[in-house]
Design a protein around this nucleic acid. Structure first.
Length: 680
RNA sequence: GGCGGGGUAGCUCAGUCGGUCAGAGCAGUGGAAUCAUAAUCCACGUGUCGGGGGUUCGAAUCCCUCCCCCGCUACCA
């Protein structure tokens, strides 16, 4: 088979915030594993990505901070680029859509469509914020629903009753940006007639699926869109931030981000070609019908990559010019949740890649995420699972297999690869097993079952351990050194194979293993053969996967509870009287108070309820001296679950409110109320 | 409200164009071994495959219905 030519793109992350673990699982990690695998297979491959830097949310972030959008995108472009590098993403190019080269691409496509009369111009009434001097997207306008009277309805749809209406019908509209009342203003936009391409799109997807086997979830999403019918979609917006509409006399309009963002793949490829010193090199991939184009994305992006982008390319290809390749496969993943809940920036739920990599190396994270990729449905990231994957699999199974083999060879064979002797059944079987692995994993990776491929690779390490155990080299070293040598030789060949098979998943560790083996990687097809010659000198062993201690994981899990409490404070959810009555608030008299020595904030109090005494630890030392509290009658939560603070048990909690200066005011009642009285 | 996805062993997840499909890993229990990061290897699962009904010789897998969770709902990216 001739060398495959492959173009791989990974979704362009939006430069309005840091990427988190969910992004990695959705698109980037599977893409990187696939690309690294294909490189080992010897494919001619180029891997493209970059920051998506236009759109309204970025301008809003900029306004909030009182800076230009450029500040925002520069910040997150650099941050995310760095995060990707540390995570081991092996992009050939990581570009950004704010570059002139991309603006040119965007304008070129727009003009191509405009000049060929493909676009439709339509007038419409849009809300305009006079204070902010901008047109408002629907989600930034709030008002009273004309149907049900719900006060937080959007400009075109009520989330409460589900009604759809014209923006003109919304009562009391209010801009969420300035808080001012927006006015309706006439505007015009260009629309791309997606509907005209629906039939061809359906055929395209059907054909690609038949030939290359698309994922079921992706097909489902597409069917959903086709079922509803595709309509015209506006490809311009009234905004200053973005690619200017390249027509004379048109001001204050830009190409809508979803029109140009997908074209960013092409621009990034152009930039890559320039950097390579061959301006037209990108055409070798994008414009050669032999190219296998694979687009890795998360499920939220399916419509853009399976429908919108292909439609653009079809429209372009209908012209006289050179034609672009359409995606041959779009292996979109579902989402990764975090400890059972959706990642949420606003709720501070989850962890950003850059922060994670400050705590742990990339490979354990890559392995953990790969072993639980949301390929068929949403999955979860759990700190405990991360620790377990690292400790029980990377360290105990893979790491230990390598370590036990190396230490044995160094101790008994002077660190040189022992020569194979007479082979017995067990040896032949192991050799066969090793030899079959590359093809086995290939099959999985080729059908985008990345997760299964990764887990299968770990099984070779398991097989290695079993072979080691069953061969008992610690016995044969004394009884039959030739047999022992055979065992270790085969174990080392297995380690070599593992280093290569695992290379796409844990590239940093793979390099370390190759270094220990004092060897270079080979092509994928050969890595299951005998690659280490007898007598070959090995380097010293090192621990590749240190264990992660419980305390470190527990600390991370403790941090999680903080944002959760914040969320509860913010919600205005109501509680029933029954729920309220579960909390027993009681009046208590403070009879003793003393400061806890090692603590800044805590006081140890003895309080008296009706006829019982309790110890309560209260965090009010900064606002009250112990002696000031004696005989004071305060309100406590009497049935709060007891907790230990600084080693002292606290049987309840004193209610207090924070004043403007951050001082605390304890809730107190005057002496006419008896201790133990229930507060209702 | 509409549309879509999901509900499979203690946990995380595979498996559904009906017939060795009732699974893997982890956890748990017992055992073997001691070269190794106390690391390995072997053995062990009576799970109503969310509930109920139906089609069929046969359903986790198809149809109907109910319950629960999640996502999307288009000028938001």
């Amino acid at each position: 088979m001739s060398q495959e030519k492959i173009l791989v793109t990974a979704a362009l992350p939006y430069a309005n915030g840091p990427i988190h673990l969910g992004h990695l699982s959705g698109a980037y990690l599977p893409a990187d594993i696939y690309v690294r695998y294909k490189r080992l297979k010897g494919s001619d491959i180029v891997f493209i990505c970059g920051s998506d830097e236009h759109g309204v949310p970025i301008t809003i972030s900029a306004d909030k901070e009182g800076v230009k959008p450029k500040v925002i995108i520069d910040r997150y472009h650099e941050l995310n680029k760095m995060a990707f590098e540390q995570f081991g993403m092996s992009f050939d190019n990581y570009s950004r859509t704010s570059l002139p080269i991309h603006h040119e691409t965007g304008k070129e496509f727009f003009l191509e469509f405009y000049n060929r009369g493909i676009l439709v111009e339509k007038q419409s009434q849009q809300f305009y914020d006079e204070k902010a001097k901008m047109f408002l997207p629907d989600r930034y306008v709030e008002g009273t629903c004309p149907v049900c009277g719900y006060e937080e309805a959007r400009s075109d749809e009520c989330e409460n009753c589900g009604s759809l209406y014209q923006p003109t019908e919304l009562k009391n509209p209010k801009s969420k940006i300035s808080g001012e009342k927006p006015v309706l203003k006439e505007t015009s936009h260009w629309y791309f007639p997606l509907g005209k391409y629906q039939k061809r799109l359906e055929e395209y997807i059907k054909e690609m699926n038949e030939k290359f086997g698309w994922k079921e979830n992706v097909l489902q999403y597409c069917r959903g869109w086709f079922k509803d019918g595709l309509g015209d979609r506006a490809i311009t917006r009234d905004l200053d931030w973005g690619i200017k509409v390249p027509l004379d006399g048109v001001e204050g309009k830009v190409l809508y981000v979803w029109f140009e963002a997908v074209l960013g793949y092409i621009s990034s490829s152009k930039e890559w070609a320039q950097n390579k010193g061959d301006e037209n090199l990108w055409r070798k991939y994008w414009q050669d019908p032999e190219t296998k184009y694979v687009a890795f994305i998360g499920k939220d992006n399916v419509v853009f990559h399976c429908i919108v982008f292909p439609a653009f390319l079809m429209a372009w290809n209908d012209g006289e010019k050179v034609k672009y390749c359409l995606p041959q496969n779009v292996p979109a993943n579902e989402f990764l949740n975090f400890e059972g809940k959706k990642f949420s920036k606003s709720r501070n739920w989850g962890i950003d890649v850059i922060d994670f990599l400050k705590l742990f190396p990339a490979d354990p994270l890559r392995y953990t995420l790969a072993a639980n990729l949301p390929e068929t449905r949403d999955t979860d990231f759990y700190w405990k699972e991360f620790q377990l994957r690292n400790n029980s699999e990377l360290a105990d199974i893979l790491g230990n297999f390598i370590n036990r083999t190396f230490t044995f060879v160094h101790k008994n064979f002077e660190g040189k690869v022992p020569a194979k002797g007479k082979l017995e059944d067990i040896d032949n079987e192991m050799i066969k097993t090793i030899d079959e692995y590359p093809e086995k994993i290939s099959k999985l990776f080729e059908s985008y079952k990345i997760r299964d491929g990764v887990l299968e690779a770990m099984n070779l390490a398991r097989a290695g351990n079993k072979y080691f155990n069953d061969s008992e080299p610690w016995k044969t070293i004394k009884s039959d050194k030739g047999k022992c040598a055979t065992t270790l030789n085969i174990c080392l060949q297995a380690i070599y194979t593992l280093a290569e098979l695992m290379n796409p998943v844990i590239p940093f560790s793979s390099e370390k293993i190759f270094k220990m083996l004092n060897a270079e990687k080979t092509d994928w097809a050969s890595c299951g053969k005998e690659n280490l010659k007898a007598g070959h000198q090995l380097n010293n062993a090192e621990i590749i996967f240190p264990k992660i201690e419980d305390e470190i994981i527990e600390k991370q899990m403790e941090n999680l509870n903080k944002p959760e409490e914040k969320v509860e404070q913010k919600t205005d959810e109501t509680v029933s009287i029954d729920e309220f009555l579960k909390i027993q608030l009681k009046v208590a008299e403070i009879i003793e108070a003393e400061k806890l020595e090692k603590s800044e904030k805590l006081l140890k109090l003895k309080i008296r309820l009706e006829n019982e005494e309790r110890q309560v630890i209260a965090g009010i030392a900064k606002s009250y001296k112990p002696e000031d509290l004696i005989n004071k009658k305060v309100v406590i939560v009497a049935n709060l679950k007891p907790a230990k603070l600084m080693g002292f048990e606290s049987q309840g909690m004193i209610l207090a409110a924070e004043d403007e200066k951050g001082g605390l005011q304890v809730l107190s009642v005057n002496n006419s109320v008896k201790s133990g009285t229930r507060v209702k």
